[in-house]
Structure formats: structure tokens, C-alpha cells
Amino acid sequence: MEKAIEIAGLWKKFRLYRDKAVTLKERLLFFKSRHRWEDFWALQDISLVIEKGLTVGLIGRNGSGKSTLLKLMSRILYPNRGTVTVNGRISSLLELGAGIHPDFTGRENIYLNASIFQMGRREVEQKMQDIIDFAELADFIDSPVRNYSTGMFMRLGFAVATSVDPEILLVDEVLAVGDTAFQKKCLDRMTEFKKRGKTIIIVSHSLEQVEKMCDTAVWLNQGRIQSMGEAGKVIGEYRKSLG
């Protein structure tokens, strides 16, 4: 099997600032006094290989490092130790609507947002109608986004990010978007991705969802991999630990 993502011996440290000194004045004043921060190892010694075409669920309690791991995969964060190797175009849904500019129209935002994901102008033009239909924004696409409702805003974000046709899709807890009908559409789109052999990595607290969608699961506990393998088995273990 080909590898989509390979992580080897990864450690990630955050600084927890007691009271962060941001300005020059503060830096000079408190230059001597150390221990303004504590090191916090958000991820410790993570090694895992994700094969192409698999759907992987990351589960674990709040603060266990799931989102951090996703950010490291998308190269928003860099590891302190170890390596992350990625093969293929990544699209990340870490937060819907990132990079959407309120003063521009829905259509202008589609161009802007799609280009952040490296889509060319022609590609966007071809997919424009699809995106508009999927987001159910036909009547509003040429009005400024600041007039949109929260739901419309989210739908626009999801529609653009998933139209990118990535080889690897990273999804962080964003499927709780919109009404039930739209949620179903999102899930359908993910299933379609899966069928086309794309790699998907999902962070979710909904164990039912992970059970339904994922082939394998990784259970993170306090920054370490507690267990990984076949989704049903790992979820079973996790459920047991929750009591």
C-alpha cells in the first residue's frame, strides 16, 4: 500500500504562558525573570502511517492532542522533534469560513477561497455552479457575505473546501454544520470521497459517526497513542475507558 501520511517519532511542545509578554517593553522589563511559561507536551512520541484510501478517525478526550495532530499534518504547526511526511494535495476543514472576507460577495469569495487551496481560475469557473448548488446559495451568491446567516456562511465554506478535489481531506469536527438535511449532504459528500479512493482523516467526538465512516481509528490519550487499529475495536476500548 502507498502511504498518504507518515509520522515518525513526533513530539510537539506548547508554551503555556502565565501572562504572555508580547511587547518590547514587557520583554525588556521581564527579561531576567524566567519561568514565565511552562512547557506542555501536547503530543509525545507519535508514530503512525496512514495508507492511501483509508478513512481514519482520531478520537480521544478534550485536550488529548487530536486537533494539534491534524494541524501538524496540514503544516500549520511544525513538530519540535520527529517528522511528518505527506504525499498529495491536502485540503483541510479545520474551521469553516476561514479566509472568507465579509465585504465581498459569495462569488468573489469562492474565487479567493478556492485559490488559497491552489485551485486555478478555470477550475473554479468550471465548478462554480456545483459549489453554488451545493451551498444552496443561488439567490444570494452575488450579495456580500456579511449579509449571510451563520448557516449560509458555513455552507459556503464547506462547499468550497470540498470542491478542491484533494487527495487527502482533513476534517476537524465541522460536520455539525447547518440543518439535518445539509449535514446529510456533507456526509454523502464524504462518503463519495471515500468511494473515489481519497484519504480522509476525521477528528470527531461522535463515536457513531466514526464507527460508520472510518476504517481505522487512533485513540489519543494525553498526547500519546493509547491504541490504534480497526475502528470498531478501538472505539470499543475507548468506550470502556469512559465507563
Binding site: 496540514s74 503544516r75 500549520i76 483541510s92 476561514a98 479566509g99
Partner: peptide, 9 residues
């Protein structure tokens, strides 16, 4: 910052 924190480029 909203872009830098959420999307890679």
C-alpha cells in the same frame, strides 16, 4: 491570523 491559524499556504 485567521488564515494563518487555519489554512496552510
Amino acid at each position: 491570523s485567521n488564515l494563518v491559524k487555519k489554512i496552510y499556504f
